[in-house]
Amino acid sequence: MVSFKINGQAVQAEPGWTVLETARHHGIHIPTLCYHEAVEASGACRLCVVEVKQGDWSKIVISCMYPVAEGIEILTESERVKNVRRWILEMLLAECPGSKDIRELAAQYGVNSTRFTPHHPDEQCILCGLCVRVCKEVVGVNAISTVGRGVHKKIGSPYMEPSEACVACGSCVTVCPTGAMRARIDAVRGEPKVQLAPQAK
């Protein structure tokens, strides 16, 4: 077992666990968006940042991928951590104003408004890539991927046309943390053969 501290609390982890796994195991909450147990972590949303201290040095890492080590000290609510989190949430409020889930999550951390002008008022997608990973790793069909680069990046099927590869399983909709995929799946699978259950408001 590996012993270390989270927010001063002594915790133990199996070798090979990440900080996030350990925290969840011990009931310590760390917010996440792009993390899901079913797929490999990718480190895209950066919401799960924590500060790791070892001796007199410290750095910010993502808990979903940072491997546990003997004697480290993890802070989940330090000033540096809170600063990263508040800016991510404030930027997401402007990036996907259409997502109720993001608004609720931001409010939980005291971010209720954004100074930034939204570029797309209905956007819900935060480009966390969970849909792409589940389609690849769990379903195994690779019907969707990220397209383009940087601020032009999007999620979609090849050439943004309905994909023959899509089996309309809905896994992408299930893992999507913001509800964006629900609006997008018909563009990927083509003519809907099955209607999705109405979304809870």
């Binding site: 990718s42 480190g43 895209a44 949303c45 950066r46 919401l47 990263v84 800016w87 991510i88 930027m91 997401l92 990036e95 930034f116 002008t117 935060i126 480009l127 890539g129 990220t146 383009g148 680069r149 940087g150 601020v151 032009h152 990046k153």
Partner: peptide, 21 residues
């Protein structure tokens, strides 16, 4: 850098754009 960001992580993709703005 805004043009060259790969867009994978949020601080870089959105942050550089907002700093530029």
């Amino acid at each position: 850098l805004e043009e060259e960001s790969c867009g994978k992580c949020i601080p870089c993709r959105l942050g550089i754009q907002r700093m530029r703005e």
